[in-house]
């Protein structure tokens, strides 16, 4: 058992290294570098050269890569070239908003998907079933930026009920319930966007498994004992059909760390997605690498959690 754990650890490290190295190569080989952003033609060419020297970009790629690797192994993620602040601090700022947004988004998606699927499975092939299939897939069939903008258009611009972007109002109270309420209002539209776009696929998946479970012996037996369809679905089929969802959710945990880029852009959300997009555009190598590593590390953790929770929930898998 211990050797298995060790092997998995070693494999994870190899993967982390491979992903990081791949990203490093990609961002270094892509034309342009951190100094490309100085575009003012009045500035002497020397200004750009100086930026390059400051960032160590005048050294050969191999030397840069090796010193980056050495620093990373020591746990030093360096200082962002764009923001002049430690990468660690920037990531620590961006992670909580992303985790909050995508966490609530995933929760909405799951609960909404389960609810729709259960409702449908109770009356399969009825008119309601079909209507729900189409409506739940509508948001799934649109790019998330369009869904987000549509929601903003209706609920923020036209009706004025909810704020269109950001985490807090500019005039938010410093603390207390008012601030919490303000934050909650700002969460509604982006969370709804993630929830709506994800709900459809999840509902389709669960409905399929629910129907499958309904034809299984134990459900049929329950029905034969006089259990209502509703009860049979809710108490017998649903728990079993929901089990594979745990794996699916475990696998989407990385999104908690890497964020949903488009939703963050549309709602000006200060999360990981936007941070990494800006870092890639600015060729801010320390920040991009830091973000990538944290994301990849989250995957390793996510997989572990998924494995563990499945073995806890499903007696068949338990060793």
């Amino acid at each position: 058992m211990r050797s298995v754990a060790l092997r998995r650890m070693a494999a994870s490290l190899v993967v982390l290294w491979a992903v990081a190295t791949g990203t490093y190569a990609l961002v270094s080989l892509a034309p342009g570098d951190a100094a490309s952003r100085i575009t003012d033609p009045r500035l002497p060419a020397a200004a750009r050269e100086r930026w390059r020297r400051d960032f160590g970009l005048d050294r050969p790629l191999r030397a840069r890569y090796l010193s980056w690797l050495a620093a990373t192994v020591r746990g030093d993620m360096g200082i962002s070239w764009q923001h002049r602040r430690p990468v660690r601090a920037l990531l620590a700022e961006a992670l909580p908003p992303t985790a909050l947004l995508t966490g609530l988004g995933l929760l909405t998606e799951t609960l909404g998907g389960l609810a729709i699927a259960t409702w449908q499975a109770m009356r399969p092939r009825s008119r309601v079933d079909r209507a729900l299939t189409i409506t739940s897939l509508l948001a799934y069939a649109m790019p998330s930026f369009a869904v987000g903008m549509g929601l903003v258009w209706v609920f923020s611009y036209a009706l004025g009920w909810l704020p269109a972007s950001h985490m807090l109002s500019p005039t938010a109270a410093a603390s207390g319930w008012a601030r919490l309420g303000d934050g909650a209002l700002h969460l509604v539209l982006p969370v709804a966007t993630i929830g709506l776009t994800g709900m459809g696929a999840l509902a389709r998946y669960t409905r399929g498994s629910l129907l499958e479970e309904q034809s299984q012996g134990y459900v049929l037996a329950a029905r034969a004992r006089g259990c209502s369809r509703r009860r049979a679905v809710l108490t017998h089929a649903l728990p079993n059909a929901a089990l594979p969802l745990v794996t699916v959710l475990g696998l989407s945990l990385p999104v908690l760390v890497s964020g949903s880029l488009l939703v963050e852009v549309v709602f000006a959300w200060p999360g990981m997605g936007q941070l990494l997009l800006q870092a890639a555009l600015a060729r801010d190598i320390p920040l991009l690498m830091g973000g990538t590593l944290v994301g990849a590390a989250a995957v390793v953790l996510g997989n572990l959690l998924a494995d563990v929770s499945v073995s806890l929930l499903d007696p068949r898998v338990r060793p």
């Binding site: 903008m149 923020s156 269109a164 972007s165 950001h166 500019p170 549309v266 936007q274």
Partner: peptide, 20 residues
């Protein structure tokens, strides 16, 4: 003077019209 980061140009226009 509050500087709000709004990356999307259409969102800037929408929010100005909505008084945000």
């Amino acid at each position: 003077l509050v500087l709000r980061v709004i990356p999307d140009a259409a969102a800037q226009v929408g929010q100005l019209l909505a008084g945000q």
